[in-house]
Each structure stands twice: as C-alpha cells, then as structure tokens.
Amino acid sequence: MRLRPFTVDVLLALGQVALLALVGPEASAVGWSELDLRGYGIALLVIAPTMFRSKAPLLVCLVTYGIWTVYVLAGYWPVATSFGPMICLYTVALQRQTRTTGVCAALLSAIWVLGSLLEDDPTSVPTVVTQAVGVNALVWRMGYLARRSTEFARRTRAEQQERARHAVVEERGRIARELHDVVAHHMSVISVQAGLAKFVFDSDAETARTALGTISGTSTEALEEMRRMLRVLRAQDDDGEVPDAPMPGLARIGDMTDRVRAGGVPVEFRVTGTPRPIAPGVELCAYRVVQEALTNVLKHARQASATVELHYRRDYIEVSVTDNGEGVIPDRVRSPGGHGLIGMRERAKLYGGSISIGPRSVGGFAVRLTLPTSARAAPPGDDTTE
C-alpha cells in the first residue's frame, strides 16, 4: 500500500518527536543547557512545519530555519532538533532548482556554525564547521540526485508513451494495408465475375455458373484470410494462440493467377530456378505485392494480358508482374487515399528488398520486386519508380 505524502510527513514528524525524547535528556551531558519546558516547546515548533513540507517545501524550509535559529540562539543543543531542518533541505533539493537549493544549504550551514560559536569550547568550532559543510553538502547532493532521477524517470515514461503512440499508429497503418491487400484483390475479382454473370445470365448459363463458382471460391478465401488476420490481432502475447490457416505465400500465387484469369484477364505464371523454403515473412511480402499488382491490372487494364514471373536466385528471389495495357493511367501511379503502392514499397523496405513500379518503355506497366533470402545478401538495385 502506497502512503500519501502528507501521511509520510506526519510519520516523519512523529519520528522527530521520538528522537527528541531520546536525545534531549543528553544535552547537559555534552555541555549544553538542559532542555526545559521552553526548550521542548521551541523544539516542537521546529518539528511542526515539517508536516507540510511536501505541500510548500521552500516556505516550510525557511520557517523551520527561522524557528531553529531561535532555538539555537536560546542556547539549546542544536543536534536534538537538526533532523527537521535537514529534511527540509533535502525536500527543497528534491523539488527546486540548484541555485535555490544551494542558498538553503548555505543558510543551514550558517545556522549550524552559529550554534558552535555559542559553545563554551572554541576548539570545537573547526570540527563543527567541517561537519556542517560536509553533512549539509551530502544532504543537498542526495536531494539533487533524487531530483535528477525523478526527472529522468519522467522523461523515460514520456518517451515510452510516445513510442507506444507511434507503435499504435504504425500498427493501425499495417492493419489498414493488410485489410487493403486482403479485400481489394478479392473484391475486384468478385466485381468482374458478378458483372460477367449478369451479362451472360440469360444467354450462357454455363459461363454464368462458372462465374458464380469463382465468386463463391473467392469470397470464401477472402473470409478465411480476414478470419486469420482477426485471430492474429485478437491473440494475446502469452496465450500461445496461432492462426489455424497458414500465411499466404509463393505456393499460392498460382491460385491467385487462376482467379484473375477467371476474371477475364489472361495471366501467364512462370517460375524459374529451384523452389526452396523461404522465410514466411518474405513469402507473404512477395505474395501481397503480386496480389496488389494484379488487382491494379483488374481495375485499370482489364483488356490487357499480364505475366507473373518468379525467379529463385542463390541469395534472393525476384518477382515481376507486367502487363501490355496501352498508355499510363495516372491512378495506377498515384492513388489518392490508397495504400496499395505505398504498401508495396514499405513491405519491400521492411524485408531489405527493392522494388520498381512504373510504365514500361514498350507499353504497359511493370512491378518488379527483389527480396533477399539470406541475411548476408544485399539484393541489387534501389527502391525506385520507373
């Protein structure tokens, strides 16, 4: 249970009273006037303000110093009530700037030395002066270090909160891109097939049934991917839950091209090199880039044909999607409010790859992605737009 500051201050004040009751009777034994009723009364006045040190540290410090000066000038033993002024100095050093706390430390040392000058034994003055300076400097230093530690902890918490806010923003962006990748491609295929089914519904029942079958399969796959992503988002860090369905990868690019081909766009899929296991994140990156590129073909170049090529190299893979559509449609290069092309570049950058996106010199459009499959490999090329 954490105590409130005022409760702590009251407990410290009671501790000072107990110390006064233990040490006060020893004053005469060390050569000071015996504490009488007046002395105990002034001592309690020295202690009383410290109960409010957390609320007004500087004011309480100055009031305590003033009453302690009266106590010392009255000829009473300063040590019996020195704990309160030192607590006040520590509190000021903890909450105020260095210049203010330095003045308070100097005042306390001066009062301490004043008490030594009132002693009958002048030979003890150098020792008392050394103690006054040394002890008060130590108290001041402890308060200063505690303040610096508190400020550092506060800055650290603020930085952690800022990093957490950035992480939330980045995660929202990642989710938005993932939703775009999952939904946009499948909805484009469904839209094309629905239009085809409607157009041939009365004249070509077989084609309409095929189109409806494609719509059914595509929508089922879209729902499975969305459920998988939602399971990932809902999974807790410590529950060990993992999605049932595997992340889409290179092996499913063929299925994707079949769907696009069923949507009316001729697509050729070629693989060169020897297929081999690749990190799931790299496979997902390549799959999503191909998905986005084919979605753009469906949206903007339906009359074109497309080619998807996957090349397995020694330390990296290359994936390209090209089409022979005529002209350059501005929306394919810059889509306001969209996440497609931005998502491609960010995915490639995340996995240390490079990507080029833009029109081809011979006509049409091309997306070329290079991703390293080895930590030692640095794939050629830069992240550019042709």
Score class of each variant (00 low, 15 high):
R96P: 08
R172V: 10
G195Y: 13
A293M: 01
I190G: 00
V265G: 02
T123C: 13
L117D: 11
T50M: 03
V260R: 00
L89H: 01
R376H: 12
V168T: 14
R259E: 06
D120Q: 15
L22V: 10
P336C: 04
M256T: 00
T257G: 02
Q236C: 12
V46L: 03
A29M: 14
F365D: 02
V328I: 09
P78Y: 06
E318C: 00
Q160F: 12
A306D: 02
V362C: 08
M187V: 05
A13K: 01
R141W: 13
A194Q: 12
V319T: 02
P248M: 03
L37Q: 08
V367C: 00
G213W: 04
V23C: 09
E224H: 10
L3R: 13
T91C: 09
T307K: 11
R231G: 07
V328F: 04
G240A: 06
E326M: 12
D331Y: 14
L341A: 10
H166W: 15
L145Q: 13
A197V: 03
R368Y: 03
V10P: 06
D383F: 08
R99T: 12
E159Y: 12
R270M: 06
L12R: 07
G353M: 01
S109R: 02
Q161A: 15
L89F: 01
V30W: 14
L138N: 07
V125F: 10
Y40W: 07
A235T: 03
G249N: 07
G240V: 05
R276E: 08
P126S: 09
G143I: 00
A27I: 03
E268A: 15
P277M: 11
R231Q: 13
A106G: 13
